[in-house]
């Protein structure tokens, strides 16, 4: 099978990889680029565990082909903490015990960050609908919603 050469930006770094035509971006991230923080829960676009940003758009990486990443910019869970430390969402997920097994967590954090980046003050309903594409089977979502609300507040510079 012939493999396509793809040049892309991942978490701000230029990366190149070879990929088979049918390979998903999720597989490329995990298998070719060794970025295993992005998880596979279904590979059919139904669970959100594979959420990443593709040119600032939230996508299920299992539904994107690796070759589509050419000349695009991808942000994954591995790029969310910075030299300054954890992102407020990461802090608040820990503080609120918003993860039990943690396998859904990368997807939730990526998706929640996408929400807060465009809407710094979402209400509960907006958070629930935005995150409806991310399945969590452990928490019942309660603590996730609270963590996102609290992170939003911190990011707005309000004391929580």
């Amino acid at each position: 099978m012939s493999r396509t050469h793809v040049t892309t930006t991942v978490n701000g770094e230029r990366r190149e990889f070879l990929c088979e035509p049918q390979q998903s971006l999720l597989d490329v991230l995990r298998d070719e680029l060794q970025l295993t923080g992005t998880k596979e829960g279904c590979a059919t676009g139904d669970c959100g565990a594979c959420s990443v940003m593709l040119d600032d758009r939230l996508v299920c990486s299992c539904l994107v082909l690796g070759v589509e990443a050419e000349a695009k910019s991808i942000d994954t869970i591995e790029g969310i903490a910075t030299d300054e430390g954890l992102h407020p969402l990461q802090e608040k997920f820990l503080e609120h015990a918003a993860l039990q097994c943690g396998v859904c967590t990368p997807g939730f954090i990526v998706a929640a960050k996408a929400l807060l980046d465009q809407n710094p003050d979402p209400d509960e309903q907006q958070i629930r609908y935005w995150l409806a594409g991310n399945l969590c089977r452990c928490t019942g979502y309660d603590k996730i919603i609270r963590a996102v609300q609290d992170a939003a507040q911190t990011m707005r510079g309000e004391a929580s």
Binding site: L35, T36, E78, L86, L89, Q90, L99, G102, P106
Partner: peptide, 13 residues
């Protein structure tokens, strides 16, 4: 916790 919110934690796959 930190490994689980940063994608470092190694799951089965």
């Amino acid at each position: 916790g930190i490994d689980k919110v940063t994608g470092r934690a190694a799951f089965g796959a």
